[in-house]
Simulated assay, not measured.
Amino acid sequence: MITLHHLNKSRSKRIIWLLEELGEAYEIKSYQRDSQTFLAPPELKKIHALGKSPVIEFDGQVIAESGAITEYLIERFAADRLAPARNSQDHINYLQWIHFAESSAILPLLLRMLVAKDGSKTPFLEGYAKGEVQKVLSYFNDMLEGKTYLVGGKLSGADIMMSFIVEIVQNNGELGLYPHIERYGALLSQQPNWVKSADIEAELDA
């Protein structure tokens, strides 16, 4: 059985969605952020040295990093359903989107959030973060033009990974600036297993 170590209000929500799509047996061990610092609890360090989430345990292995978890589980259980054929152009695009989610896309969004949270005047960082956010989100928006899903016209691990970016844009009240992301986010939120994963996370976070 797959065990997901899940932290509330974190990137591991999309791993719940992935697990539901896979249809394999799994369990969730849930952790809550510190109410003052909003950091993960120290108990997570007993699972992985970084003390972060998501982390899965399966078949004697402890696997961290959302992209690695997504690639591994899809390759193991759903390569014919949630990934394009290997050696195809779609598969190259699929891998790029999976890694874009946790590199180029998330970094400026996190930087902007941290600058705002710190509250200090940082003319360079504030301007840099704003420009990078606009660049990556405009790119994401433009690449969705004329598409339903990101790759091959059907749901894949790339969409599951990028769903967290859509959620951040939505939470920041910026979807109206990016109409293709807005349309795409509405499509993802109608997926039955996305709805189920949102309900599961809400219940764990209650």
Results as ranks from 00 to 15, higher is better:
114 L>T: 07
174 E>P: 11
198 A>G: 11
166 V>I: 05
73 L>P: 02
46 K>D: 15
198 A>C: 12
125 L>K: 06
191 Q>S: 10
34 D>Q: 14
200 I>N: 15
67 G>C: 02
136 V>S: 01
120 S>G: 04
98 I>H: 00
153 G>K: 02
35 S>I: 15
156 S>R: 02
146 G>F: 11
27 E>Y: 05
187 L>H: 14
190 Q>T: 11
167 E>S: 04
25 A>W: 08
110 L>N: 08
172 N>R: 07
52 K>E: 05
144 L>F: 03
102 E>C: 00
160 I>F: 06
94 Y>W: 02
72 Y>A: 07
76 R>L: 14
112 R>D: 02
109 L>V: 12
101 A>I: 03
79 A>G: 09
145 E>A: 10
36 Q>K: 03
74 I>G: 00
5 H>D: 12
136 V>Y: 01
145 E>T: 12
40 A>P: 01
52 K>D: 00
113 M>H: 10
92 I>T: 06
83 A>Q: 06
33 R>N: 13
200 I>S: 15
132 E>H: 06
187 L>D: 12
69 I>M: 01
53 S>G: 13
85 A>W: 00
80 D>N: 10
81 R>P: 14
26 Y>Q: 14
92 I>P: 00
128 Y>N: 09
92 I>C: 01
68 A>H: 10
72 Y>E: 09
138 S>H: 05
82 L>M: 04
141 N>P: 02
171 N>G: 13
